[in-house]
Design a binder for these strands. Structure first.
Lengths: 162, 162
DNA sequence: TATTGTTATACTCTATAACTATA
DNA sequence: TATAGTTATAGAGTATAACAATA
């Protein structure tokens, strides 16, 4: 999701034979939860990428850090299950945050195969800032919704995936 | 999104030192529109992939076909703008559906650079079936929502991206 | 000079198979 | 025999630069 942001809403001059850029009838698509959910996610994802680049965090990085902040010692297996990430794809994510000094791996208390993941002090500090930034960015991205509408939206989305 | 489906809800026997697979505290993530939107999309996307494989249609293919059904002669440029697809990435999508005999390219009435995209009779037939299938699959994927809740959900999502 | 469609390309994301060490 | 973590790798998805034909 590199520069998705720059592609949104390009209101240029009505050049040539483009008989109405977005004057296409899309009533079927717009009646679908899947289509609308994806479109909304793309917008929020673009705002996220734009704002969180300052912290060097992609959505998955933020999710892992936030989860570790509230579940110290969680294992890769647990985080993968929670976030629907395949273990092989999780290895580099953890390794990168380890190299950045945000997390560290400690032996699991009673399972020699597993590794407990913990935030370092630097990780703790970053996740505090990051959570504030995300909450702020979310408020802006959903600024057309009232507080009550936003709660309703989240509740309805959770009825689909929970 | 190949076999995302198979990874959902794997209720196996509680094996070893996994002290609670999904017993992780994720209250911060679950309070975010971005996180919930993505999770809901993943579920619906998995159902879509599972059901629409029979028609050989991915979400983007269906979107293009549905758009062409209601906007015959639309150009690649218009479809790219509507669906937020980059033109280079659209070339193969159109070419594949052309090879399948679902669409055909006709010269644009008054712009020699552009190409009008049209459904073939086979494309028309497929999109009719596909739209029925998607509407059915959507109803099941959002079966925990009442008709009114589903409308509300779509309305709120559109307030974010429209 | 700008736009449509295109090629080539690269980077990210997601997926499977198979290995190791532990259980 | 099964699980946690890992390696290697392949396939989508998504991005940019640059070109030809047309406006």
């Amino acid at each position: 999701m590199a520069s998705t942001t720059s592609r949104l809403r390009s209101r240029a001059k009505p050049a040539s034979a483009d008989s109405g850029n977005d004057r296409l009838d899309s009533h079927v698509l717009e009646s679908l939860v899947g289509y609308n959910t994806r479109r909304a996610f793309l917008v929020i994802g673009a705002v996220f990428a734009e704002r969180m680049a300052a912290y060097g965090l992609k959505p998955v990085d933020f999710s892992v850090l936030s989860l570790l902040a509230h579940n110290p010692g969680a294992t890769s297996r647990q985080l993968c299950a929670k976030l629907d990430i395949l273990p092989p794809n999780f290895v580099n994510i953890v390794a990168a945050m380890d190299r950045r000094g945000l997390i560290e791996r400690k032996p699991h208390p009673f399972d020699g195969r597993a590794v407990g993941l913990h935030l370092t002090p630097a990780g703790e500090a970053l996740v505090k800032e990051a959570e504030r930034a995300v909450i702020e960015l979310e408020a802006e991205a959903s600024s057309k919704l009232s507080a009550r509408e936003r709660e309703t939206l989240i509740r309805l989305l959770q009825k689909i995936y929970l």
